[in-house]
């Protein structure tokens, strides 16, 4: 499934996902990409392993309360928290997105933003925002001015710009220096996940990245 993905997450984002320092919207983007991309998933697991080694060899340890083990066994006796019901499968939205949409692609609550383009803001914490975008086949993406860092990942269809063509699973990483005019392929309506740290504050959580596409 992931063999055709050409545009991946950066090491910096994968490490930050593993360290748990990204805002929720970016975690959602990473989790969605990892659902489609085995290459990045293996990388993310390596970064988790790094965290495990740090935990194992941490110089400091803090003693627990004297009754901590008994208290924990009591918690265990109380039973596990019930698992959340798994959302039904969907060919367009991987599981992490289905959790935020509350269902599959037909459950997305689109709001028109003009020229046939629609969007749906997803509920994430402050610091960064996430939304789904619907661009009709052959149409140009609206100007969404990159004020901070913006990641756009294709879920259905494809779009092209001056950089390359982006299809399902591909991520375009843009910052304010990128000027481009993405256009959806004529063959299918394009659905993307877009996350940005721009609107709320200047980049306190996301390291500004070198644009990987410039290195190709």
């Amino acid at each position: 499934m992931s063999n055709e993905i050409k545009h991946h997450l950066t090491d910096e984002l994968l490490m930050a996902y593993s360290a748990g320092t990204l805002p929720e919207a970016f975690n959602l983007m990473v989790a969605t990409h990892l659902s489609l991309c085995d290459t990045c998933r293996a990388q993310a697991e390596s970064y988790d392993a790094l965290g495990g080694c740090m935990l194992q060899d941490a110089p400091d340890m803090v003693d627990l309360a004297d009754d901590a083990l008994d208290a924990t066994l009591a918690l265990i006796a109380g039973g596990a928290a019930p698992d959340l019901p798994a959302s039904p499968s969907c060919d367009v939205l991987p599981a992490p997105l289905r959790d935020y949409v509350g269902g599959g692609v037909s459950d997305i609550k689109w709001k028109p933003v003009g020229m046939g383009v629609k969007q749906a803001i997803l509920p994430t914490s402050a610091g960064a925002s996430a939304r789904l975008l619907f661009i009709p086949a052959g149409a140009a993406m609206p100007d969404h001015g990159h004020k901070g860092m913006e990641l756009t990942m294709v879920l259905q269809g494809a779009f092209s710009d001056e950089i390359d063509r982006f299809a399902r699973g591909d991520i375009e990483i843009a910052d304010e220096d990128l000027e481009h005019m993405p256009v959806a392929d004529i063959s299918a309506d394009c659905i993307c996940l877009a996350v940005t740290d721009a609107p709320l504050k200047f980049n306190s959580l996301i390291p500004k990245l070198v644009q990987p596409f410039l290195r190709i």
Partner: peptide, 18 residues
């Protein structure tokens, strides 16, 4: 522990891959 920390300190969900 990391996921629980995000839950505890940030009161956020932690999206995990499928």
């Amino acid at each position: 522990a990391r996921n629980r920390r995000i839950d505890l300190l940030r009161k956020e969900r932690r999206p995990e891959p499928e």
